[in-house]
Each structure stands twice: as C-alpha cells, then as structure tokens.
C-alpha cells in the first residue's frame, strides 16, 4: 500500500507538472498569436498611411522645369542686382526677405497695407490703405521714433481730429524701436501687436517684429533698395 501511495503521489506530481507546463505553453502561444495580430494590424496601418506627396515622376519633372525657369530668372535678376544688399517685401505672403544678390540672408513675417478705403464722413476725405508696389530705397533710419498720428488715425477711431501741432498727435513707442523711411510717408517700423504679423493689417507701412526690426536696423544701411511685390 505504501508503494501505491508513493506511485499515486508521483503520478499526481507528474500531472501537476504537466498541467503547469501546458498552461505556460498555452500562454506563450496566446502571447505569440496576440503579438502576430498586433504586428499585422500595425503593418496594415503603416501601409494604409496616405501619401502626402505625388509619387509619380511627373512631380520631379515639373520641379526640374521650374528649376530651369528659376535659373534663367536668377541670371537676369542677378545681373541687375550685382550682389547688392536689398530687401524684398512680399505683400501677398506678408514676408520680408533680406538678400545679398540672389542669396537669401534671412526672412521674417511682416504686415503690409490691409487695403480698403476710409472715408471721413465730416469732410469727405478719403484714404486708401495700400502698400504700393515698386522699387524704393531706405532714405533714412532712426531709433526710438515718435509717431505723429495722422488725421486718418483719429477718423478711424471716431475721435475728433486735433490741430497739426496738438500733443495728442505724438505717440511715442507706437512705431517700435526703429523706423526706416521709404519716402512719401511709407515706413518700415515695429508694432505693438506682433501676433498680427503675417497678415495684411497695416495702413500702408510695412510692420516688422521687434527682433527682426533690430536685425534689419543693424544690417541694412541707408540707400538699401527695397522691392515691394505682390
């Protein structure tokens, strides 16, 4: 009987070990299957990612054709510029580029004229807030300018227009730390509302952020050409 009990105990141990091994094996297999399924799902996801670019060779061919045109333009414009330092203001993209010849030195967001016309109901005077296109020059530049508030600024805000020498017209700090004069009342200056840069919101001047304005002040001397394009 003792032998039977011992044999029985051995059988039970073997059985227990067998079940444990079976359980472990089943768990491993289930894990493998789960992993395989997850990998399959990931692969399906990766393969289903949309292509953000046209994959056909036509895109590259078009780019090559554009490059040919750009090279011809570079030659023509480069001959005129002769490596000179100049500013390009893109009124549509509201970007300002500082270039030396064809080389782009840096670019910044800016704001140009918002367009539209303001009419003074009292006198019938009209103002158009457009930044004109063309080739300008920096005629002068200054630090800490005071803005002499023009009539349209009072008309726009519905305030009575004061006489020309009225102290109300002097607004220090409105134009930022630096100002560039482009002639005929058009300026490049700073703004108190930098969050609006990149959008056409000015009254005809070119607005720049404080850091970019400082950089431009330090880089562009009087006489630098300014091309305003649309």
């Amino acid at each position: 009987m003792g032998r039977d009990i011992q044999e029985m105990a051995r059988s039970t141990d073997r059985l227990e070990a067998g079940f444990t091994a079976l359980d472990r094996q089943a768990r491993e297999d289930a894990g493998l299957i789960q992993k395989l399924k997850a990998q399959s799902r990931e692969m399906e996801f990766l393969q289903s990612l949309p292509n953000i670019l046209p994959a056909d060779k036509g895109y590259v061919r078009t780019q090559r054709a554009i490059l040919g045109e750009v090279q011809a333009l570079r030659r023509k414009v480069g001959q005129r510029l002769r490596g000179s330092l100049h500013i390009v203001v893109d009124g549509k993209a509201n970007k300002l580029y500082l270039k030396r010849g064809l080389e782009l030195l840096w670019q910044a967001d800016c704001s140009v004229g918002r367009g539209g016309t303001l009419v003074d109901p009292g006198t019938g005077r009209r103002w158009q807030f457009v930044t004109p296109r063309g080739e300008f020059r920096i005629l002068g530049k200054r630090e800490n300018p005071t803005w002499i508030k023009p009539d349209w600024a009072f008309v726009e805000s519905g305030e009575p227009v004061p006489p020309p020498d009225d102290p109300k017209r002097k607004v220090p700090g409105e134009l930022g730390a630096y100002v560039f004069n482009l002639g005929n009342g058009y300026l490049i200056h700073g703004t108190r509302r930098e969050e609006l840069l990149g959008r056409p919101v000015s009254h005809g001047c070119v607005r720049l952020g404080a850091d970019d304005l400082k950089k431009l002040y330090e880089t562009a001397p009087v006489g630098t050409k300014v091309y305003i394009i649309y």
Partner: peptide, 8 residues
C-alpha cells in the same frame, strides 16, 4: 526725432 507728416 522722426517727424512724419502723412499724406492728406
């Protein structure tokens, strides 16, 4: 000081 008289 910069004195800018705007066009009227």
């Amino acid at each position: 000081q910069l004195v800018w008289t705007p066009p009227q």
